[in-house]
Design a binder for these strands. Structure first.
Lengths: 221, 221
DNA sequence: TGATTACAGACCGACCGTCGGTTTGTGAAT
DNA sequence: ATTCACAAACCGACGGTCGGTCTGTAATCA
């Protein structure tokens, strides 16, 4: 019975999170009122505020949940002793570009493009505090291995992340044109190579797969 | 009398703009209510909405005004036939970093650091649509002159602007530490050189002046 | 004098968040 | 088994803020 009660508790909170996620994605954060969530969840204001401190609290919970997932993914890459720094950076880059897909599965993927400055700011800060240190480790490894030459690893990686963040903002515009998308992708690849002092080819094998995924998704549209 | 009347009109509207600017900078856009502005301007709601369509309209007016100024400045640099592409880019870079000063004069300079995601989004889009094409012209000139090597000028410059935009967001953090500031500045310089394929030194003469300006301002703090 | 301009201020509706109160479940004492 | 004490989950009316609208009005101009 105690377990049942606990399950009920979690279920309600999860319901709220789930519904909020759906509405936030569908209508945007600012345009979604708490009452909208209540209506769908068939719960009262009091019930809502029993589980969450504020509307922003729900957003935080959603973002935290997914940032955690992404962080774990990146950590797995960084900790893999089998991989060279180049391979690690390649895997991360592919993952990051996958995040820019027009139709993702994660809340982040969709939400990051929701044009809601509040959310973008939140996600940007969270990614910066969690992912940035991990990427710096990769670059430091690259420097040790002699495949990268970077004077200011932390600041450079930070800057590269800012580009990705900026790309998210302009993605709606870019997605409308496959040629554009391709150019931005190639430019990004070039920028990463140059800023990190990587010589030779980088991201070649899986390039087509990720690109074709983008293009396919655009065709479906 | 007609002139007097017209002058009165402009004066009231300018008063509103001026007060709004002050309050926005001081308390942030979202935290400044229209009534705050009315109180200071000693005007009624009706008066306000006679001159502006909405709260956002005031913001637009303020941003537009200053974007126009910045655009003119950059245009002056781009159109100066005396300058090489490198010199133009150098001048722009210095100007851009001046924008990151903790205490600027322009509304943009202060406001850009106001932590209000809405504003940053606005300014980002405006800068992108007005400044980006101008910078692309510089890079194209650089390519013609053989001092720059860029495969995707538009996308690359776009990315560089995204970095500057991102820097604005984290400036409050960076400004607290002179060493940090210096590293970010140097990293930025390096990134610009590498991504644009610039060989040799870039931004050297005026480097100290702009840096010392930053550092002095920090000391005063 | 009629029309337009430049305001004044009451009012509206949407929204976030609070608060006192109720129900439901839980564990212990009787 | 029943009662009691207590806490967690939940209800919904309400307060207060804020952006925006609407009607009224005084001055000015044609």
């Amino acid at each position: 019975m105690a377990i049942c009660q606990l399950a009920k508790v979690c279920s309600t909170k999860n319901d709220l999170l789930h519904i909020a996620e759906e509405l936030f994605v569908k209508n945007g954060y600012t345009k979604t009122s708490i009452e909208d969530i209540l209506k769908r969840a068939k719960i009262s204001k009091g019930g809502f505020y029993h589980h969450f401190e504020s509307k922003g609290d729900v957003l935080h919970a959603l973002i935290d949940r997914e940032i955690h997932l992404v962080t774990q993914e990146v950590e797995k890459i960084v900790r893999n002793n089998q991989l060279s720094a180049l391979e690690k950076m390649e895997q991360y880059s592919l993952r990051a570009w996958a995040l820019l897909k027009p139709k993702g599965k994660l809340f982040l993927e969709i939400f990051h493009q929701a044009k809601d400055p509040f959310i973008n700011e939140e996600i940007f800060n969270e990614l910066r505090s969690h992912i940035l240190p991990l990427l710096v480790k990769i670059v430091e490894q690259g420097i040790r291995e002699g495949t990268m030459t970077v004077k200011y690893p932390y600041e450079t990686v930070d800057s590269l992340m800012m580009i990705r963040e900026g790309l998210v903002r302009v993605m709606p515009e870019i997605h409308q044109n496959q040629q554009k998308m391709l150019r931005y992708f190639m430019a990004d690849k070039e920028i990463v190579c140059r800023t990190l002092g990587i010589k030779g080819d980088f991201i070649s094998k899986q390039l087509e797969s990720i690109l074709s995924a983008h293009l396919k998704l655009n065709k479906v549209k």
